[in-house]
Design a protein around this nucleic acid. Sequence first.
DNA 1: CACATGATCGCCT
DNA 2: GGCGATCATGTGG
Length: 200
Amino acid sequence: MTSGEFPRAFFLRPTVEVAKDLIGAWIARRQGDAWYGGRIVETEAYLGAADRAAHSWAGRRTPRNEPMYMEGGHLYVFMVYGMHHCANVVTRDPEIAEAVLLRAAEGPPGTPAGLLSGPAKLCSHLGITSAYSGRDLLAGDDLRLLRGILAPPELAMTPRIGVDYAGEAKSWLLRFIDLNSPAISGPRRLNSAAKILISE
DNA sequence: CACATGATCGCCT
DNA sequence: GGCGATCATGTGG
């Protein structure tokens, strides 16, 4: 696995592929001269108009989710529960409103365990707010995604978290985790219903 | 560990 | 008006 920035084409691929391949990638945030961040260990795919759990379900298009309709590689950040933010990487071509939710990352050694374990905690501690919604990840200079430099992770897939309202889509296996990471969100969320190993 | 609850407000119907 | 792509805390087993 090589290191460095992802090219635009990476984000234009099928959303599930992007969600898988972002496991093991790094998210980096600049604060002055220093960079902070972590290794992404948990993502979820949101599949646009056909996906009842997605904000773009049934073609919904509002000021809030407008970034989902942008070209892959942009950021879609929204607020939930009036107090938390969630960050998504938009995928595919313009007008195809799909995205990958960044759910958890592992901080460098020495950082408190669980600091980035959860979509809202990740945003909070990396300072990602609604101000970043609609931004192009390939254009900014203070928030970047970088290819992983470690061995490819062992992946598992499970249903997504917190989408019980989504009918049939709630059981779709669109959550991807690094099996060996201690930083997965929630209380050892593996043992619930469906879990499948993926052979890389 | 599993589950339940409250906080809190922007966004959409 | 109602409802979350969450989290911290509290209870009980």
